[in-house]
Nucleic acid binder design. Structure first.
Lengths: 219, 219
DNA sequence: ATAAGTCTGTTGGAAATCCAACAAAAAGAG
DNA sequence: CTCTTTTTGTTGGATTTCCAACAGACTTAT
């Protein structure tokens, strides 16, 4: 565990917790360190989990399979990131997705119930940990809700305006940069890239916005 | 507060907590009971909040206003339900939405930070409360993620199949009931109702599924 | 049973998206 | 700087959705 201290320090979940406390925290939470080979299954869809994972090295993939057996990749989780924390916290009986190690990986598992319940020694960092976990899931919640607001618009134009409007609001200015390339933005908004590019040009010609690369301005 | 005990008992957040403990829990959390008139603003977009709300009587609306001033209603929150808990837990500096009372209402406010931090008396129901709050946000997370999977499909047909496939999986059978009317399903999937009805007929004619009212069967 | 109202299915034309292919611009490598 | 690769913008035809209007089925109230 000690060799991964540098990574643990940077994990959101442990933000605000002294480095010197991390190792004792791990034993208090009885975190389990596990090794996985490439293509090995970490969680199998259908099983019940109480622990979520943190990637300490390598990468895992969240995979879903529908009724007809079509597999789709929902996310790639890299070093320092959590996975399956929502399923574990929600105490879902049947995991609706599988988790696969895409490379040889070192994963840390923590039982959700240990976080919610105060430990015997009532360690001081425990409440920080709870706050962090709540913060992480709440933030995710907000960004998911926002994404739904964008992609539930019916036309590409409306999706773009909703998204750019939100970015402007976030930046507190009608001038702002977006963190996506055109292709990434199209994927995020669930539209065709070329059609989106065309719509952006149209909006510019109509004098509704200006842009240059990732720099946008609403007018 | 006492007159709302019957409602508090049914609030998800307090699940598993003895009725006899609810009132002392309220004082431990320093829950604040407030009265609002119809159309009164509960939270104003832009402000910082640390507390979330629970509707004890009446109804509130979550309202968003975009860059051009177009207002849209994101949700109606009725008796027994929480609102703004994600924003409060995520410690967002600027609330991106407003909350308005749509009728005369009685609202209970609870400070998020009080939940995460163990109280002085270390009351036993505190860890239950934390678990409940985590459970609520995690569940919301899962259903939002699932909804995104559906509506990010490009065609009505794909959206339908993704949704029905997930319902079948949830039911553990290829035969299941859906909790939506046609119009509600269309709204949920962000498509036109009549086009969706047409697509359903098409799928039935192609022998991909059967349905009668809200009873569906995948073939 | 009748009537009114709601929900669901059907259809055709208008509008928007998707797709593929290509052109232009920008970024990166040698 | 030149060449290569990647990203972005443009266009036209095929596909899909949207919209409006209507008909039939089902529900509810009287």
């Amino acid at each position: 565990m000690k060799k991964y201290l540098e990574i643990l320090k940077k994990v959101n979940l442990f933000k605000g917790i002294e480095e010197s406390n991390l190792l004792s925290l791990m034993s208090c939470l009885s975190g389990k360190l596990m090794h996985y080979e490439k293509n090995q299954t970490v969680f199998m869809s259908g099983e019940t989990i109480n622990s979520f994972g943190i990637v300490l090295s390598g990468q895992v993939q969240i995979v879903q399979e529908d009724y007809y057996g079509n597999r789709s990749i929902l996310a790639n989780i890299g070093v320092g990131n959590l996975f399956a924390e929502s399923f574990a916290c929600a105490q879902i009986e049947m995991l609706p997705v599988s988790v696969i190690a895409t490379t040889e990986s070192e994963l840390l598992f923590i039982d959700c119930r240990k976080i919610a319940n105060p430990c015997a020694t009532a360690c001081s960092f425990h409440s920080q940990l709870i706050q962090n976990l709540l913060h992480i899931t709440a933030m995710k919640n907000i960004s998911l809700t926002q994404k739904i607001e964008f992609i539930s618009k019916r036309t590409t134009r409306e999706k773009l305006i909703a998204y750019l409007s939100a970015e402007a609001q976030k930046a507190g200015s009608n001038c702002f940069c977006i963190p996506f390339s055109r292709q990434e933005l199209a994927d995020y908004l669930s539209v065709d890239r070329s059609a989106m590019s065309a719509e952006l040009s149209k909006l510019r010609n109509e004098g509704i916005l200006k842009y240059k690369k990732n720099n946008f301005e609403l007018l």
